[in-house]
Each structure stands twice: as C-alpha cells, then as structure tokens.
Design a protein around this nucleic acid. Structure first.
Length: 293
DNA sequence: ACCTAATCCTGCATGC
DNA sequence: TGCATGCAGGATTAGG
C-alpha cells in the first residue's frame, strides 16, 4: 500500500526511465481508472513528451510539454513499469502508454482503485483530493506549531486524524501505527489532548521515520515494488504493523490489533497506554467506560 | 458542521 | 476439493 516513501521511490525510479520519451498512443483496458473524459484523456496525451515527475502527498504529478500534467494516485496496489513492447504484461494492466520508441509505460493495478486525470500544469493544487492536503512532512512547511494547530482542531482519535491527509499528508496505515509506537502515543488518544511534548515527539518521529523509509526504498508488504521492479527494505524496520501477537521490541508486551476508525490498528498496550476511560474487552475491542457489567 | 459507514475491487486466508 | 465468507485499505460519498 503505497504511502509517501513508496510513492517517492516510484517517482525517483520512474524519472530516468521515461524522461524525454514521447507518447504515440494510449490504450485503456479499464476506463474507470480515468477521472473525467477517458477519450479526451487518450487524445490529449498523444504526441506529448514526459518531462519530469513531481509528487504532492501520495499523488504523482507527471509533467509533459504543452503545460499538461497527469495526476496519478496509486491507492492500494497501483504500479508503473516500462515494457519492451506495447503488449499488456497481464490482465491487471489497465493503461498502456505506447511510446514512439516501441516500448510502453504500463499501469498495473490489481484492485483497480488507482485513479488518473489530466489538468493544465499549475492548476493541480485546485483539484479535489489535492486542494485540502496538509503540509508535506519532509518540507519546511511542516512546523511544530502548524502541526499543533492542526491537531488542536480535532477531538477525534489521533489515528484517523493522521490518516486523513489534512493536518499532514503522506502517512498511511503502516506509518501511522509506526510513528505512534515510536512516540509512545495510543492511537485512540484524542488529537487535541496530546501534550506539547507529545506533539513535538510525534512531529520529530514522523520526519525521522519517513526520511528513513525513503532511504530504504519504501516498505514492501504484499506487493509493492518500484518502477524497476525492486522491493523496498523498510519492512524489516517495522515495530508494530503486522506484528500482532508478537512481543513489543521495546518492552516485550504482546502487540495487539484493534479497529480504530474502521482501520486495523497495531499498538503496544504497555508503551502506548489507553487514554483515561478506555479499556480492551476480551475480544480486544477498545471500549469506553468501566469494566462493570 | 461533524462523524461514521459504505463504497470501490481482487486475492488470499479461513471455515465447513 | 469446493464453495461461501470475510478481510485488507485510500479516498470519496452517502447518510445520520
């Protein structure tokens, strides 16, 4: 599931493969991947040359000549790679960008959740999905005070607040669980109840963790690979995600998995104690209230 | 305005 | 073995 480090790794690995190449034709095998008019999408890309790729949060921004930008979100399992021919690699390839040199850039997405759309370069910031994104966590915009102000506006649990991309963008389910463990903050803690010390710690851990994960080429769980087919290495640095039932690397207490905001959530009940008033019942659901029956 | 649940999809794991 | 069921989840949308 690509989060910021994986999307960034895709961006970096894809740039040298496609820069300067020209599109001869676009084949669509699942038009729903395209937001807006899919015929227009195909027509506008013919004759365009890839210039570079930028990134905003988890969105890739493919830059072409003629002020054209293709916004692409990989969602769960989207992948790009270069094929030596124009034939689709397999049944999960939904978009083929045929290049004038006889090769093709192919987009594969087993779950068909990914989306692409074309905009005039420079207008991408107004597109829904990008418009409301919070600061880039690895940029100077992501300050402690901006982070604190963002958290202050939410009284729901910190986990869904970090997932919704508005306070800070780029974190997904894996890295949220990891940074909360690193910061020793329970995922159910109301965002506006974090102490200043906790906000500072979380801010620093988000930056440190994402920086390390980018350097490791991302995290490969299930299926992620970059544009050259390489797996990431950061899965070996995970402490809680997917580790339910195993000992916490810090205190040896058994890691538990619960649902928070509808998402699987891993944490250490000792290092990340539940907020006041919460407890886990026998099926490890987090519930509010006393243990009385 | 706020929050939760359902939605989209497929592959894989589980259970009978 | 085969079939049904459930689970995974990012972002959007529908509903309360």
């Amino acid at each position: 599931m690509p989060e910021l480090p994986e999307v960034e790794t895709v961006r970096r690995s894809l740039i040298p493969l496609i820069t300067g190449k020209k599109i001869a034709r676009v084949s669509l095998y699942y038009p729903k991947i395209i937001n807006g008019d899919s015929k227009l999408f195909q027509a506008l890309l013919v004759g365009r040359t890839f210039e570079t790729i930028d990134r905003r949060g988890k969105y890739l921004l493919f830059r072409f000549d003629e002020h054209l930008t293709m916004i692409s979100h990989l969602r769960m399992e989207g992948k790009y790679y270069l094929e030596p021919t124009v034939q689709p690699h397999n049944k999960h390839v939904h978009v083929v960008f045929e290049l004038t040199d006889g090769t093709s850039l192919q987009y594969q997405d087993v779950r068909k959740f990914g989306r692409m759309q074309l905009v005039d370069t420079g207008t991408e910031a107004q597109v829904s999905g990008i418009k409301l994104l919070g600061p880039e966590p690895l940029s100077s915009d992501f300050t402690v005070s901006a982070f604190q102000q963002g958290l202050q506006r939410h009284h729901k649990a910190i986990k869904p607040v970090l997932l919704d991309q508005k306070v800070v963008t780029g974190l997904g389910n894996i890295y949220v669980d990891e940074v909360l463990w690193l910061s020793q903050i329970n995922p159910l803690t109301p965002a506006n109840q974090l102490t200043l010390a906790q906000v500072k710690e979380l801010h620093q851990q988000i930056i440190a963790e994402l920086t390390k994960a980018v350097a490791a080429g991302g995290t490969t769980i299930r299926s992620y690979v970059d544009a050259s087919g390489h797996s990431g290495h950061f899965q070996f640095d995970l402490n809680v995600y997917g580790e339910e039932g195993k000992p916490c690397p810090r205190c040896q207490t058994t890691i538990v998995k619960i649902k928070v905001g509808g998402r699987g959530t891993h944490f250490c009940p000792h290092c990340q104690p539940l907020p006041l008033g919460w407890h886990l019942n026998e099926t490890e659901d987090a519930v509010v209230g006393g243990a009385h029956e």
